[in-house]
Amino acid sequence: MHLGMVIDLKRCVGCQACTIACKSENGTPPGVLFTKVLDQVAGEYPIVKKKFVPVLCNHCQDAPCVRVCPTGATTKREDGLVLVDHDKCVGCRACYVACPYKNRVFLKKGALKTGYFGGNQMTPFEKAKYPKWQEGTVVKCTFCVERVDQGLDPSCVQTCPADARIFGDLSDPNSKVSRLIRQRGGYQPQPENNTEPSVYYLE
């Protein structure tokens, strides 16, 4: 099994529901975004094109972040998920700079102290979610491992109103993701880096 995601740029409407769904699933602190949707504008008025490009950790199969990690905190699972064991991470951020997609985030000291409303106003939601994270370590998209292990789609996929994110088994030629990649010429981001991303884009 090789889990992966296909992102259909034709469908994506840049609504950022995925961005927020990820926040709500993972309870990440302010400034920490495991996924977001970028605007990409080309041309000059009146011939202008605008694309919305969702980005997240690509769960690369030859992941530089795994390679450079000195502690073994970042590892790749059998099913392709690249995960960080926060208990092992020393916060050296070698992975951070090595990720060609800049998809990692370092939790600074104090990152888990205030919550989104500031002051001493941590919400019950944040109090419930933050124990999952550790200050001083590097975090990133987990492909919603807890959900995926229960056979559910990741949160960003689940909510996407346009069904622009599709999750599935890349090693199964009959899965929806494999078929879409085949039929619509799905491509990986920055193939020149030979990182073998598990995320594919469809134009």
Partner: peptide, 21 residues
């Protein structure tokens, strides 16, 4: 610089692939 200096020794774990190690 380390986020978790008390765990510095862990950075010796993976010299096989990591230049930091």
């Amino acid at each position: 610089y380390l986020g978790r200096p008390e765990r510095f020794w862990r950075a010796l774990t993976k010299p096989g692939t990591s230049w930091v190690a």
